[in-house]
Nucleic acid binder design. Structure first.
Lengths: 214, 214, 214, 214
DNA sequence: AATGAATGAGCGTTCATTCAT
DNA sequence: TATGAATGAACGCTCATTCAT
């Protein structure tokens, strides 16, 4: 008996493979590059179009407003970070403490990359004045924290859900704060390894101590 | 660091008299309000002039370019934070550990204020694209860390200068990172007290443990 | 006058079949709706396409330029008014004076409808800057006046052809002038019946008096 | 004893005589010319600026938005018509019927001028989609009708206020309707004198007949 | 110190039109 | 028939800056 799918006349399997899709993606990449090179306060559709090698009119055929483009760009950027978290989650090994150290190290080391160093302050600034940015940001950090909580609870199963959440907020926020200090070309970039060690030790002490407010 | 007055073009010796000083300062306050209300990407000389109740021409008599105004504004804002650190340093009491807890609490609690919550992400974003902002920011955090180091060394005199610096970077960065999460109207604002406790405990453990990379 | 169908480019003999005819007409209706809702200075092909539920490209298959669509739309609108005049002419009864009163009443009452209230000022404005609009408009008012003249001459056969024409111009122009005052949502809309009475009485007096300039 | 005025230091008697005032006026004239030459649907700030010989930026220094310019232009145009009504009112002579004929003749003859022929249909069209235009238009016709009512009541003092108003609406509306038919370069322009006679006779009959709905 | 006038560039956006498929 | 893609121009508007007074 034919399935619903096979009954459809050849069905548009390739949902979006036209050259338009490529253009739409190249616009997002150009937008991201511009955001990082010049900051949101210098982010204009004309510059994005020029960076992508398009006319302004054509760019606006794909993203009909600056808001639409900004949202798509943030979505795209953040999705990539989420994808990395998924990868990390999948790598969870036997020893949770070792796993935790590896996780912290990887996240902190990522702060050294130029795009991370520059992107996040732009996002935080945007989130102070743009509700869409708030949504994207909150959704991302929610998922980020869930990964942390999974590892933490494996280390110390005695912690309550509230304590786990509290720890995850504290740890993630503490790490984010290093962006401006040990990030790409930032004055303490060479301290990254030392920071990783201090972070891992103090976070693990907190996790083990069980003295998290309840 | 320059005062608001020094931004004026004619820079006489007797700089303190005349209503011009008041105007220059009212411009800076208007600029700061605008920066916090609308973000730097909506920051324009016209809006500052309107906020301050001046004509555009007159504003530009005091600050002949947008860059000059931006610098003076950052200077003024940062100076106020430095003034607070000076106050805190002056209050150092007998028990350094108690003093440290008080210091951490006060700094973190300040993150809850609207102006702090909004100002710093703008500053960090600016510092990614504006060399002047980098200078102001670095100078401020340097002084910030010196205050921290003074208290830390009173708690554990065995720490080397390098370890002190490392600890100060780690602590100050960790605290800054909470701006976007427990700041004004941020989702975890009500966790501020718990965050303060976790921060103080884990930082003190680090200070006492002596296991800071050397 | 051309029908909606003739606006299509391939203009075959068997012009009436296929759903293309329906599409062409739905475009004209969408265009008319848009003209009345937003005025000609907000009239764009994109908006017409959106209103008609078509893509821009497809709309321009039917009407290859804005001018072509505008002409077809005016044509279509005016044709409907002419059709109504034909109906009215067909209803001519025995008593020409009674017939005249009915005619005047019906025409004036039509001014109350939203589409008439809005459409005609747009047409008059267009006719000041667009030669095609002038042609459509003149042709329509010519037919309009012929109907009037037929009834008038039945009332007073002594009037010369020139006098008839003069009267028809005066009467039709006078009526049109009420559009902006007793039309849909206009300030004197509730005076419509009184206006009808004054119009009918004074026009009939003119017709009977015979004192029309010769 | 010095008056308040003389006490002021030279007092800005010339409230607005700077060159800026001239520029502001020249913009209004350019705007009006453009409106009449090309219609509101071709009315753009760039074209006004070009017509006035200004840069776009400078034009918008005087009129900060298109709406502001449009309103100022309509205000200016309508004010000139109101001034003419004031003149006419001042000329009221002894014989009210003669006065009425002169009034009607003058108003209708004015329809022949290019600016009147074109301006009013634009205004009516605008008033269908722009609330400001509605206000200007209503205010103008209110004053227009008051002048008419003064003359009519002198001819037939037996008419009630309601009847006067009704008559004024009917007469003014009837006259306006001729704009598109006997106006500048309109097909019946040469009939203007005949129209004036028919209008005056039929309006006077209405006034005298007393058969105005009450 | 302060105002008003002016410029020229850039902004986000809408548009009519063309063309390949 | 119909869609999607692309162009180039124009739109209203905001802006930093300059300058004369």
């Amino acid at each position: 008996m034919a399935t619903a799918a096979s009954a459809r006349p050849r069905s548009r399997t390739r949902v979006k493979s036209g050259k338009g899709q490529l253009t739409a993606l190249s616009i997002l990449l150009a937008a991201e590059k511009l955001l990082i090179d010049e900051g949101y306060h210098n982010f204009s559709l004309r510059k994005v179009a020029a960076t992508a090698g398009l006319t302004l009119g054509n760019l606006q055929y794909y993203y009909p407003s600056k808001d639409a483009l900004t949202q798509a760009m943030l979505d795209n950027c953040i999705q990539r970070y989420l994808d990395r978290f998924e990868q990390i989650r999948a790598q969870v090994g036997a020893d949770p403490e070792k796993q935790f150290r590896a996780l912290i190290a990887e996240i902190i080391r990522d702060l050294n990359t130029r795009s991370t160093t520059v992107f996040f302050p732009e996002l935080w600034s945007l989130a102070n004045h743009d509700d869409h940015a708030v949504e994207f940001m909150d959704a991302m950090y929610d998922k980020y924290r869930i990964v942390l909580m999974e590892v933490i609870t494996a280390i110390n199963p005695a912690l309550s859900q509230a304590q786990l959440k509290r720890l995850a907020v504290f740890i993630s926020a503490s790490i984010e704060g290093h962006t401006m200090f040990i990030g790409y070309k930032k004055p303490w970039a060479r301290e990254t390894d030392n920071i990783i060690e201090m972070a891992a030790e103090s976070f693990l002490w907190l996790i083990h101590s069980g003295s998290i407010p309840a």
